[in-house]
Design a binder for these strands. Structure first.
Lengths: 212, 212
DNA sequence: TAAAAAATTATCCAATTGGATAATAATGTG
DNA sequence: CACATTATTATCCAATTGGATAATTTTTTA
C-alpha cells in the first residue's frame, strides 16, 4: 500500500487522482449502498481495474471511510463562513441564517448524493456508520444546535420547538427536492436541478424559515 | 423449522404470510438496497428458507415490486380521508391541510423505511424504480399538486413558489427527522421516535407551514 | 381414504464478489 | 545507465448469491 499522489496530473496513463476514486466511490455507494456497491463497479466508473483500487485502499470498508470523510470535508469547505463573513454576518442574526440557508440549498443541489449516502446506512446503523457519524457529524451538529438556540432566543426561530426537530425539519426541507430529483422528474415532470428550480427553492426556503 | 400457516386468515392462498414476507422484504431492502439485499436474508428474518420465498415470488425483482406496492398501498390507507372527513374538512382549507400534515408526520414516524426505500433507488433511477413510481406515485402526486394549487389560491401557501418545490420541501421537513432517527440519536442524543418527539415535530410542522 | 395440489426442504449450479498474490510495466533516483 | 520503488495488470480463490430442480411433507379435495 502506497501513498496516493494527490496531484491531479492529467497524464495519459490510467492514473486517476485520489479525488476521482473517492467521487466514483461516493456515486457507487450512493447508488447501491455499501453491500450492493462493488469494488469492480467503482473501478469501472473511472476505467480502473479493481486491483488498482485495492492497491490504494486496503479494503472496501476503508475506501468507504475515505469517501465519507471526503464528503464531509467537502461539505464543510462549501458551507463555512470566512472570517470576513463572520464579521459581516454575526452569529444569531437572521441575515446570517438566510445566507447560510441559501448556501446549504446550493450544496444540496450540487451534491445530492450526500443525503442519499447518509440515509442508506442510518437504518439500523452499522458500527461503520456510527463511527463515521461520530467522527464527522457529532461536533458540527452540536454547534449547529447552539446556533439554533441563539436564533430561538433572538426570535428568528420558534422558541418552543426542540432544536433537533427544527434542525432536521429544515435540512429535510432543503435536501429532499434534490435528493429525489429523478423521482420529481418522473412523477411531476419538474427538473429540480435546473438553475431556476434551485433559485426558486432557495427563495422558498428562506421566505419560509426566515420570515421578516 | 417453524412452518408458516398460510391459512390462518380467511383469504385463500399464501395470504397469511404475504404481509410477513413483504414487511421483511421492506426492511431488508430499506437496510441494504436492492443489490445489497439477499433473498436468503429476507427469508431468515421470518425463519423461512430462501426456497420458500422463491416459491411465492418468481424472483427478487418481483418480490421488490410486491413489497413496494404494499408500501404505497399502506400509505394510501393511512393518509386517506374518509367521506365524513371530506365533508368536515373541505379541500383547500387550512384546517384540512393541518390535519393532513399531522397525519403525515405520524406516518413518517411509524414507517421510516418508506423514505429510505424511495431514496435508495432514485439516484439514477432503474427501470424498476421508474415503473414503481409511475404506477404508484405519479397520479397521487399530481392530485397533491392540485391541492397545493388550491392552497396557494386561498393564500395558505405562498403563491409564487413552484408547487413541486413546496411539496418536496414539506415532505422532506416531515420525513427527515424520523428517516434519520438513528443519526439523530448518535449525533444529538435525541430520541426522535419517542411519543413526545413525534408530537413536538407535528406541532412544529403545522405551525411552520400553516401559519394563522 | 386415496389421489391431487400446495407447501416446504434440501441440494445443485453458474456468476459475482472481496480479497490475495505474483508477474510486469513505469517511474524515479543514485 | 543500473536499480529500487511505485504503479498496473492478470490471475486465483473461497464465499455468497440468485436461481433452478428434485425430493418430501402437508393440506385439500374428490
Amino acid at each position: 500500500m502506497s501513498m496516493i499522489d494527490l496531484k491531479t496530473k492529467p497524464t495519459k496513463g490510467p492514473a486517476r487522482s485520489r479525488e476521482d476514486i473517492l467521487q466514483a466511490a461516493l456515486e457507487e455507494f450512493a447508488e447501491r449502498g455499501f453491500d450492493g456497491a462493488t469494488v469492480r463497479g467503482i473501478a469501472a466508473r473511472i476505467d480502473l481495474t479493481h486491483g488498482m483500487i485495492r492497491y490504494h485502499y486496503d479494503n472496501k470498508e476503508q475506501l468507504w471511510f475515505a469517501a465519507v470523510d471526503h464528503l464531509f470535508e467537502r461539505q464543510f469547505e462549501y458551507l463555512k463562513f470566512t472570517p470576513e463573513e463572520d464579521l459581516e454576518f454575526p452569529r444569531g442574526t437572521r441575515e446570517r441564517f438566510a445566507k447560510f440557508l441559501r448556501r446549504y440549498v446550493h450544496y444540496c443541489a450540487k451534491y445530492p448524493e450526500h443525503a442519499r449516502i447518509l440515509m442508506q446506512e442510518t437504518v439500523s446503523p452499522t458500527p461503520r456508520m456510527r463511527k463515521a457519524l461520530k467522527q464527522n457529524l457529532r461536533e458540527p451538529h452540536q454547534t449547529t444546535v447552539e446556533e439554533i438556540r441563539m436564533l430561538q432566543e433572538t426570535g428568528v426561530l420558534k422558541a418552543d420547538a426542540p432544536p433537533a426537530s427544527i434542525m432536521y425539519m429544515i435540512s429535510g426541507a432543503c435536501q429532499n427536492l434534490f435528493a429525489l430529483a429523478p423521482e420529481v422528474k418522473v412523477t411531476l415532470d419538474y427538473n429540480a436541478l435546473s438553475r431556476k428550480a434551485i433559485e426558486d427553492h432557495a427563495d422558498l426556503i428562506v421566505s419560509t424559515f426566515v420570515p421578516d
